[in-house]
Simulated scan of single mutants.
Amino acid sequence: MELITGIEQFAWIGWIVLIAIFLVIEMLTLDFTFLMLSIGGLAGLVSDLFGAPLWGQVVIAAVVAVLLIFVLRPPLIRRLHRGEDPTLSNVAALIGMRATVISTVTGLGGLAKLANGETWTSRAVDDGVSFSPGTALRVVRIDGATAFVTSDTATPQESQA
């Protein structure tokens, strides 16, 4: 019985540690989930300061955290992403891009010049297919430093535009 009394007496320390841990994780993830959990922990700490029993503190902290996650977090996320640039970048921007064969592209390899001017090691998506130099292609996917390509109906001049 003394152990439980000791835990209840010093529960505020546990709440502060839990809040600090959640805030550090939130700083690393920037997803607002752990921020809501830390605010729930703050509610548990406040209920401890008002003399609530330990089980009540945990229930209050859990209810506040869940409510915040489902009610406050979604609008915060929308507001955070509201001004984002919708333009694709990096590898995602290469998918669907036109390319021109520089050296014969087969299922095993070859070189293609993408519309953005980059030269990539390329492979045909379909096995047994080969594309000769000057053929217009389209990037289907990127795997590491290899562009997987397929035939494109555009002319080579359009693929460089």
Rank of each mutant, 00 (worst) to 15 (best):
M1V: 07
E2R: 06
I4P: 05
I4Q: 10
T5R: 13
G6W: 01
Q9M: 11
F10Q: 11
F10P: 01
A11K: 06
I13V: 13
W15L: 09
I16F: 06
V17G: 11
V17D: 11
V17I: 14
L18D: 10
A20L: 14
I21E: 07
F22C: 15
I25A: 05
I25N: 07
E26H: 06
M27Y: 02
M27G: 15
L28F: 05
L28Q: 06
L28T: 15
T29W: 04
L30Q: 09
L30T: 10
D31W: 01
F32L: 08
L35W: 08
L37I: 12
L37C: 12
S38A: 15
I39S: 01
G41L: 00
A43Q: 09
S47V: 02
S47K: 00
S47P: 06
D48N: 12
D48S: 13
L49S: 02
G51I: 05
G51N: 04
A52R: 03
A52S: 13
P53Q: 06
W55R: 09
G56A: 07
G56D: 03
V58P: 00
V59Q: 04
V59K: 01
A61D: 12
V63K: 01
V63D: 02
V63S: 10
V64R: 00
V66A: 13
L67F: 11
L72S: 13
L72E: 06
P74C: 01
L76V: 03
R78L: 04
R79D: 09
L80V: 10
E84A: 02
D85E: 02
D85I: 03
P86C: 03
T87E: 09
S89G: 11
S89P: 01
N90P: 10
V91P: 04
V91Q: 10
A92D: 15
A93Q: 10
I95N: 07
G96D: 09
G96H: 01
R98P: 05
T100P: 00
I102Y: 02
I102F: 01
I102V: 15
S103V: 09
T104A: 10
T106Q: 05
L108A: 12
L108G: 12
L108T: 09
G110S: 08
G110W: 14
L111M: 12
A112H: 11
K113M: 09
K113R: 14
A115I: 11
A115Y: 00
A115K: 07
A115D: 13
G117N: 05
E118Y: 03
E118D: 13
T119H: 06
W120R: 04
T121R: 03
V125I: 14
D127T: 04
T135K: 08
T135P: 01
L137I: 11
L137P: 08
L137V: 13
L137N: 14
V139H: 09
V140Q: 14
R141A: 15
G144V: 06
A145S: 12
A147N: 10
A147T: 08
F148S: 13
F148E: 15
V149R: 02
S151P: 02
S151N: 12
D152H: 13
T155R: 13
Q157L: 07
E158D: 08
E158R: 03
S159C: 13
